[in-house]
Design a protein around this nucleic acid. Structure first.
Lengths: 148, 148
DNA sequence: TTACTATTGAGAATGGATATCAATATCATG
DNA sequence: CATGATATTGATATCCATTCTCAATAGTAA
């Protein structure tokens, strides 16, 4: 099983008869460096630093490619932008999203997952994927409590 | 406390110095009749039956109005469309969404809600609202099991 | 009625994402 | 290494949902 994202990309390109390009390698590097939850636009800006001539379309196409290759995951939060995160860690996780500063915190909860399966089973529903998002204010965006 | 949606709308309009119009009343009626999870486009088509001259913008504006008035709830599912549902029943609920036929099943689960609060508290996060969606295949869209 | 102002409808504009297409880069092969 | 077949790129046009603009119209209080 291939673990390294670069190798994973190469393997996918090979298998599909696609070509390895400077843009794809570079965008992958930047994507992985960037940390999580980048939008296409953010990635485009970052990519232009090392590749001034890069086009918008290429970034979009490449992100789709990463998704198909299993390297990235598409996320749709309520702000309407599509964001991408590396699919490195295999475990499913959910998100806490701060409505003020935009910080995104990841979490996992085994019990919730289990209860979800129960609900699905009860409705004879075959779940393929799910999404749990808690919107609100992160600690540093909350109005401070004053000491009485 | 006002319960009836029409009254609720009138009260809101009054309070904001807004006007009651045929379009708003009619769209509300259609919206409530339509059942749940209508997109603006669906509602537009429905509205044109009784009001052939209605404009797209009016439907959008009116749905936004309903949302502000607390009569409707905006939902963003992964298909990219914004859908609206009546806010009549006050209880929060989550969704099972069939990826094939688009059916949306609602459910509530007290235990999951509780676990969510726990997670939030642990991260010192003040949740304002949340979203739980399970995507997959509903019973009738699943490949039939053959009897062995 | 009148007069004030909110609302409407048509169409333009927006913004994120995708499609088009000629020029270019990749790569297996000779 | 040169070549040819073809995948990829970048610029731009296009798409689609949604919002904005603005002149005409409708609601409402007086």
């Amino acid at each position: 099983m291939i673990r390294n994202p670069s190798e994973q990309l190469e393997a996918y390109l090979d298998g599909q008869g696609l070509k390895s390009t400077r843009q794809r390698d570079e965008i992958l590097r930047i994507f992985l460096d960037a940390g999580h939850h980048v939008s296409a636009d953010e990635l485009y800006r970052l990519a232009r630093k090392s590749m001034p001539g890069i086009g918008y379309a290429t970034v979009y196409r490449t992100l789709r490619l990463f998704t198909e290759a299993g390297i990235a995951h598409e996320r749709h939060f309520d702000d309407g932008l599509t964001r991408y995160e590396p699919h490195a860690k295999d475990t499913h996780h959910d998100h806490l999203i701060c409505l003020r500063c935009g910080t995104i915190i990841e979490f996992e909860n085994e019990q919730i997952e289990k209860l979800q399966s129960d609900v699905a089973r009860r409705h004879r529903f075959a779940v393929q994927n799910h999404k749990l998002e808690l919107y609100g204010l992160c600690e540093s965006c909350q109005p401070k409590k004053r000491k009485s």
